[in-house]
C-alpha cells in the first residue's frame, strides 16, 4: 500500500479490447467501481474493465489524472472538466457516458451528460433527428399535436426554424 512504501500505488486497468493502462490508485479511486475493488482487496494484478474500450479508457484516465491533480477547488475542477470535454466529439462523449456510468464516476458522468445535453440545446427538431439519426415515428397529425401540446414551453424562447 501507498502508505507503507512511500511511493504511490499504481493499478493496472485492462480495457475490453485488452489494452493495459497504469494509473495511480489515488486517481483511479475516483471511480467508485474501482474503489470498491481496491477496498475489497481485488485490485491486485490487473483490473479488467469489460465495458470500456481502450480509446475511451485512455480518455477517462486522462481525466482521472487531470482532475485528481487539482486540489479541492470546485471552480478549477469545473473549468478543467469544461476544457477536457471541449474537444470531444459526440461519439466520444456517448462512449464516455457509458464508461462513466460503468465506472461509477459521478463527477464525470454529470459533466458529460451536461455536455451532451448542450449539443441538443436550442436545436430544431429536425436537427436533433439528423444529428442523432433518429427516425421520425410520428404521423404528421401526431407531430402537430405534440408541437401544440408543447407550445406553452416556448413562450419567450426563440428556437431555430424547423430545418
Amino acid at each position: 500500500m501507498a502508505a507503507e512504501t512511500g511511493t504511490p500505488t499504481t493499478l493496472t486497468l485492462k480495457s475490453n479490447d485488452d489494452e493495459l493502462f497504469s494509473v495511480a490508485e489515488s486517481a483511479a479511486i475516483l471511480s467508485v467501481t474501482i474503489r470498491n475493488m481496491v477496498e475489497d482487496g481485488c485490485a491486485g494484478g490487473v483490473i479488467p474493465l469489460d465495458n470500456v474500450d481502450g480509446k475511451t479508457l485512455a480518455s477517462v484516465i486522462t481525466y482521472m489524472n487531470g482532475i485528481s491533480a487539482i486540489p479541492a477547488d470546485e471552480e478549477k475542477k469545473k473549468s478543467y472538466r469544461d476544457k477536457f470535454l471541449s474537444d470531444k466529439d459526440f461519439e466520444t462523449l456517448a462512449d464516455m457516458v457509458l464508461a462513466a456510468n460503468y465506472l461509477n464516476m459521478s463527477c464525470l458522468m454529470d459533466a458529460v451528460s451536461a455536455k451532451i445535453a448542450q449539443v441538443m440545446e436550442k436545436k430544431s427538431v429536425g436537427w436533433v433527428r439528423r444529428k442523432f439519426g433518429i427516425e421520425n415515428d410520428y404521423t404528421p397529425e401526431e407531430e402537430a399535436a405534440v408541437k401544440e401540446e408543447h407550445k406553452w414551453t416556448f413562450e419567450g424562447v426563440e428556437t431555430d426554424d424547423d430545418n
Binding site: E121, V128, N136, Y138, E143, V146, H150
Partner: peptide, 9 residues
Amino acid sequence: DLANVGSVC
C-alpha cells in the same frame, strides 16, 4: 429544449 426533444420521436 425538453419540449423540443419530445417532438423528435
